[in-house]
Amino acid sequence: MIAEYASRLIQIIPFFLKGLLMTVVVSGISLVLSTALGFILGILRTGRSRLVSRSIGLYVDVMRGTPFVVQIFIVFFILPEWGLQLDALPAAILALTAMTSAFICEVVAGGIRAVPKGQWEAAAASGLNKFQQLKLVILPQAMRTILPPLVGQYVLMIKDSSVVSVIGVTELTRVGWQTVVRIPEGLMVFTLVGVLYFVICYPLIRLSNSLEQRLSQESVRL
């Protein structure tokens, strides 16, 4: 019986790979968008304007304080009531980007705050304008603190992308769910799904760890 299920499962592996591709596409697009948005928000968060900083802080709190599944329901079910009708895929990307950009914002803000104040002053004294100070002096140093947790956020986002299956995006988890209805071998099906996630996430976790070690060693050497 189990052998029969296993052979059927092997037959539908292309189906799983399609799901994996969808997971990669959804998280890839959200990754690019949320990195861009997160960096902008993070830089504004450390800026001089109190009001802007506070409002971004509130945004971050709301994103961090509510479960992603509730956020995605809000995007998918409530935005249409307010006149923004989205398909499942754009809704998923919007929700993932909104949440991850909040997390990345905090990572970036933390990295910028970790750069000593003297660096800003030195850059200003060299006659660089605000944008040049940030681009040429502050961010290159902040990247050392930002990079490892940033990769960690990407891993979290790829894992959270499994939740968009609830609004019907046919990504990896959704494929597993559809399969288990037909092949009642829950352990086998979701082990396969888990292995496919592992293949993407584990190297990224290792990358984050090695970045952390390499970058902190470098700072010791200086």
Binding site: V155, V163, T173, G176, V180, P184, F190, G194, Y197, C201
Partner: peptide, 15 residues
């Protein structure tokens, strides 16, 4: 740490 919680929940729920 390398797999989503939702997949783990389904793993136990269906498994």
């Amino acid at each position: 740490r390398s797999t989503p919680l939702l997949v783990q929940i389904y793993f136990f729920y269906f498994g």
